[in-house]
């Protein structure tokens, strides 16, 4: 629910950039023009806004960026049956599998994020998330008989990583990784790496609410980002060289027996959150912002803020509603 503010808000999914706007940064050796691209990946609209000297370069770089998104989605998606992540999931309880550099890296980051948040963010929440997806479809709470074994299977300490062989193992049968709380942030960071390596440093990547802002637009101190949380409020914030993620009480919820359950599941209880809370996190990178946003919602306002305070360069905006 985030979008780049006008005047360059680009409707639709066309990959053609809008009319170039010449920049007048006197110090720049080249005149930079703003280009904006959008494609649908991972079930959301992904937007890349960047400044480049030439249209051809912008188009080419954006194309490679979307290709990188698609590649990473094929690795990290838990929706795609054939994803590398799901191959690891299917091997839970068995032997360690050699994994790609990206999967290893995101698992390593996720493990540390889980530890740093005391398990409020937990990438092994997959089994209970599956139950809650079903519950949202059926309008019925998971039965205790279904919930108990699913909860048993949750626990990030069951992720075993072997750096020497770049292999990974889920220690218990039934474990399932769900990188929904960190994957988009990770992808944004990797796309950001790619853009910078292509000498495109002024960019904003928006993967359906998980953002990475690079250097600010010429002559500006940051990218202005409008945050809408679904709690009826919206806030504008400015960010540069930072990740921004919003998590919380958006449209994704289910009401069962008069109780409103968020789509965010508390890994520690296996239940959807019932507190109406939304958190926007600004962090040095999008991976951290993504993981912390989920953790802050799970922890609640006081504990969530206390957690975020420990992270240098992290700012949090929390909204709650009754």
């Amino acid at each position: 629910m985030l979008c780049v503010l006008p005047p360059f808000l680009h409707a639709g999914c066309a990959t053609d950039p809008p009319t170039p706007t010449p920049e007048s940064a006197a110090a720049a050796s080249e005149v930079l023009t703003r280009y904006e691209f959008a494609q649908v990946h991972m079930g959301v609209e992904c937007r890349i806004t960047l400044y480049a000297p030439r249209r051809e370069q912008a188009v080419e770089v954006a194309g490679r960026a979307f290709a990188r998104i698609a590649d990473l989605d094929a690795v990290l998606s838990d929706w795609r049956v054939e994803s590398e992540l799901n191959r690891l999931n299917d091997a839970a309880g068995g032997s360690a599998l050699p994994v790609s550099e990206d999967l290893y890296r995101v698992l390593d980051l996720a493990w540390h994020a889980a530890e740093a948040t005391g398990g409020a963010f937990d990438p092994t929440v997959g089994p209970v998330v599956r139950l809650w997806r079903q519950a949202r479809r059926d309008g019925r709470l998971p039965t205790p008989d279904a919930l108990a074994p699913a909860r048993e299977a949750v626990g990030w300490r069951g992720i075993e990583l072997v750096p020497e062989s770049r292999s990974a193992r889920l220690s218990r049968a039934g474990m399932r990784l769900d990188l929904g709380g960190i994957g988009k942030g990770y992808i944004a960071d990797r796309v950001g790496d790619m853009l910078r390596s292509e000498r495109v440093s002024r960019f904003l990547i928006d993967l359906g609410g998980d953002l990475l802002a690079g250097d600010p637009p010429p002559g500006r101190t940051g990218w202005t980002i409008q945050v809408q949380t679904g709690l009826g409020r919206s806030s504008a914030l400015e960010a540069a060289n930072a990740g921004v993620a919003t998590s919380g009480d958006t449209a994704q919820y289910v009401e069962i027996d008069g109780v409103r359950y968020s789509h965010i599941v508390d890994p520690r209880t296996g239940l959807g959150l019932t507190d109406r809370i939304a958190a926007t996190v600004i962090a040095p990178d999008a991976t951290t912002a993504d993981a912390l946003a989920s953790a802050v919602c799970v922890l609640g306002e006081a504990e969530g803020l206390a957690l975020a305070e420990r992270f240098p360069g992290v700012r949090v905006l929390i909204e709650t509603a009754r």
Binding site: D108, H112, E115, A116, T117, R310, F311, P312
Partner: peptide, 29 residues
Amino acid sequence: PWFPEFRAANKEFLPDWGMVQDSRGRFVP
């Protein structure tokens, strides 16, 4: 392995602590 739980349960006795980002981008305590 349980430092987050320990630090949460003992926060009134412990000095402030924070996270730092290591060379691999991981936040570590």
